[in-house]
Design a protein around this nucleic acid. Structure first.
Lengths: 247, 247
DNA sequence: TGGTGAGGTTGACGTGGATCAAACGCAGGG
DNA sequence: CCCTGCGTTTGATCCACGTCAACCTCACCA
């Protein structure tokens, strides 16, 4: 395994970067910072790494040093337990942070894998803590980001605990749609970066069930599906389906 | 609803408190602080509130101001969505923090309810941020606590996404056992503070399924169950059952 | 002491999604 | 151009858990 890690390291291309001229600064960590503060953040985010599709950004068990902001591309995180079971715990896109799980024990507890060629900014965590002791806004924003992750996880728990298959998939698609929209992409038409199996793992379903749900949505005119290309034809219908109570 | 909130407020008994002589200081926020720092924390944790069984500590939708440390007692948190579905997202015991979900939007996103008569310390969040800009150790520890919550949620997602009923219950009981142990109580014998229904909600199961699993564990000699009184007879057996892979 | 009601147990039955299996479609390589 | 293989679709069958319903237990109270 350690040799794999080494290989992954070599695949990284280290690039000097700066938050102050990054077009993600309204989406990412620097939200709401003053120009002078932004300048300080530039020193913090010292390296950028390129990853190819399939590369690990980090692995469970590896020591934790930095959190990462997705600059471009698409990631998944997954956990696996000794008996062979695994679960995708999230998908991360542009401007979202990776690695927050590692803070608690100084060791990453999940794997982060690029689902397409991607770039991330590495943010050494001790530096981030130092800087957020100086910049109140940054501190507060970082706390909000961590809290939002907790709220998101509660949403997933709700989905896994109470929703049926089609409701889960509808919720998943609407969430993706909204996140693409927030990034200036079409909320109605997008390419899935992940396989049916990965969607299933995230939603607590088998890939066949995911596939059947897609087919059903298409039959009902809610979606147009061509492989991983998705077009949402009836957002309201999806939303209604998602919140349709059973009993 | 707002009148309910008012009622809940009135039910609180405000008590002057201090971290520096609290016997939970090794379990709670003050871990690892120097005496001088602890003194500062005392000013922060200004009020203690008593709640009776069934009282809400806060409700979803209420404005967020403070996080809370459980000083004694037992809580559950749950989220509910418009269509009537709800899910218990966690159970909190002595020394654990409540309210972290509220940071992201300044509004609580779940309900926190006392499952037995309890006491909490209220920690005004803006003060906590201020103090953690001064006390590095506190800052870091708080970050770890938030991160640990994220890791815990990932564990629950794993449980909900990949485990079957008996595996879930085994995992739940072992987790409780370990937390009681960490607090100096017997890891083998304890009283459940929550109903079968609440356990089911947390584990994504119906109460009948929970009840059947308890009966089965008892038949197999893993547990002795008398209502909410649990005695674990075979920890290894439970652990094996939990990690028993299926296919 | 017996009545009442909430929480828990147990049984019979139904069903949503898992499992198993076959076939399809597209991309990459010789 | 066809071969190969992976990801996906679709169908048939199975089973774990949900649902519905009866009954049991204990705490509480008149």
């Amino acid at each position: 395994m350690s040799s794999n890690v080494a290989t992954a390291r070599l695949a990284f291309e280290v690039v000097k970067t700066a938050c102050s001229n990054c077009n993600l600064r309204e989406l990412c960590l620097p939200i709401g910072l003053e120009p002078a503060e932004l300048k300080k953040l530039d020193e913090l985010v010292s390296t950028r790494r390129r990853l190819k599709r399939g590369d690990h950004l980090y692995r469970a068990g590896q020591g934790f040093e930095s959190i990462y902001a997705v600059r471009s591309g698409f990631f998944k995180t997954d956990v696996l337990i000794e008996d062979g079971r695994d679960q995708v715990t999230g998908f991360q896109m542009t401007g979202e942070l990776l690695g927050l799980d590692g803070i608690s024990s100084e060791i990453h507890t999940c794997n982060a894998i690029a689902l397409e060629d991607s770039e991330v900014c590495a943010i050494p965590f001790s530096h981030l803590e130092g800087l957020s002791r100086q910049i109140h806004t940054l501190q507060h924003h970082f706390h909000k980001v961590m809290s939002r992750e907790i709220v998101r996880d509660h949403g997933v728990m709700m989905l896994l605990g109470t929703m049926r298959a089609e409701e889960r998939l509808a919720a998943f698609l609407l969430n993706l749609s909204q996140r693409f929209k927030a990034r200036g992409y079409s909320p109605a038409e997008f390419n899935l970066r992940m396989s049916r199996d990965e969607i299933g793992s995230y939603l607590g379903l088998k890939l066949e069930t995911v596939s059947r749900a897609f087919s059903r949505f298409q039959e009902e005119g809610l979606l147009a599906v061509h492989q991983r290309k998705i077009r949402i034809l009836n957002t309201a219908g999806l939303r209604k389906l998602m919140t349709h109570q059973r009993s």
